[in-house]
Design a protein around this nucleic acid. Structure first.
Lengths: 255, 255
DNA sequence: TAAGATTTGTTCGTATGTATC
DNA sequence: GGATACATACGAACAAATCTT
């Protein structure tokens, strides 16, 4: 695991005890190659090992818990365990980074336009029938044009889920996370703000046709076609959002 | 800010007190629109406000500290302050997500190939003379071919810094973070493992020419050229790494 | 169902460390 | 250097959760 950078670089030597204990435990996990679910020493043992008080040890565990690196359970058989950082938590922690930074919808789409076609192309011909069926099932949520702002919003969330699922199907965890993260941000935004409140039959139809073409290209394994269709789809979505220069990501997320 | 998702979704109601306090403080920060550096209530005040013990409050602060959301200082005028999540910390937290997942060098390059040309194109004609000069200064670190494995490694780190700086110059914080994150991962990898240990004069020359062409295109504002050159550069780098199917990101990073 | 064992969760009082004035 | 205002750390006790019998 990576060392947590100190907030103040000059405070190298005078890091607090919980911080040092947390680092030591991380190193210990790495050196012993512990896997998610593996047990960590209990509070009592750590108190003895480090020669520190219970409170200090517990603060160290909270530091690790907030990062998703450990989970604790009470009761017999309980204790602290190595945790696998979930996608949700990683998204939440990363979203905090952008909280005080200005990220516009256009910024998000600049990245989506570059990444999503790449994903689509790499997935062409690689999806199972079950996966294709799942994508088609999601599309059923917007088989009919929306009749209200609320329905429009629900459909937009569903279409973002389409992209998030697609990103799960690849075998590139990095690409999958980046795409899923952006879908998550846009979803939160859709739910919180009154974005996408104007049902537009024409755009609905074109967006749906895009996805139908995309599924077809994915099924037949036409990577170039999948890339082109996804690119058109993204560009259309971007122009749709272009008006919305709202601020984005004005919330936190973490444990 | 975003709520920290519980490790176990079913444990909605029985979240521990430090967790609930941390969430309450986050909400309080958001609702009051506090900015980085703004003061949070002191321990004593929080103890009274929440009606909880000092230990519980402190554990809550550790949860927030690990996420980079607060910083604490001792002494008069000290206390807890709203913190801005640094790029380093966000990178570290995100790297933890990938610790137990397999991310290959090829995976990283699939994303780089999609993103870096996009960045280069969007920056064409937008850089100041000072920024261009800084990039050229970095290139000086590999003006001559490496004569040893160690020099080769240093040059590779420097060339990654080139890309990281370039990503800082854009005004898209999202794109900048993604690119900088990948450069960071590759840098750590270069330092830790014996990657890039075979000096290769031919590849060194081609890589350097790429960057010279890139600078020229950025200066003249030729977006298409910048895109193409960066794409070639990335593809060459990828083929260079292709042999290295080593596992990546086998370390943690956080506070 | 109930009791007991185990482990984390929480409190309180006190003392120490640290930075500012 | 001393006083002040904070966070930091310790220790003992008790509470709550959960597994086993």
């Amino acid at each position: 695991m990576a060392e947590t950078p100190p907030a103040d670089p000059k405070s190298r030597g005078r890091r607090s005890r919980p911080l040092r204990v947390a680092d030591a435990i991380k190193d210990w996990v790495v050196e012993h190659g512990l896997q998610p679910g593996d047990r960590l020493p209990g509070e009592a043992e750590l108190i003895e090992q480090f020669g520190m008080s219970k409170g200090t040890i517990r603060e160290a565990m909270r530091l690790l818990q907030a990062q998703g690196l450990v989970e604790t359970k009470t009761g017999p058989g309980g204790g602290s365990f190595v945790g696998e950082v979930t996608r949700e938590r990683a998204s939440a922690l990363l979203a905090n980074y952008f909280y005080f930074r200005d990220v516009s919808i256009n910024d998000i789409y600049q990245v989506r336009i570059a990444l999503e076609p790449e994903l689509a192309a790499s997935l062409a011909g690689k999806l199972t029938d079950a996966q294709l069926a799942e994508l088609e099932a999601i599309m059923e949520h917007y088989a009919e044009p929306a009749r209200s702002a609320e329905e429009e919003r629900q459909q937009h969330v569903a279409s973002l889920r389409f992209h998030a699922r697609l990103s799960d199907f690849g075998n590139n965890a990095l690409l999958g996370f980046f795409i899923g993260f952006m879908a998550q941000i846009l979803t939160d935004l859709t739910v919180y703000k009154q974005l996408y409140t104007a049902p537009n039959h024409d755009l609905w139809q074109r967006g749906r046709l895009h996805q139908i073409d995309l599924i077809a290209a994915l099924r037949t394994g036409d990577a170039a076609k999948a890339h082109a269709v996804m690119r058109s789809h993204m560009e259309m979505a971007q122009s749709l959002m272009d008006i919305q220069e709202a601020e984005v990501m004005k919330r936190f997320i973490a444990e």
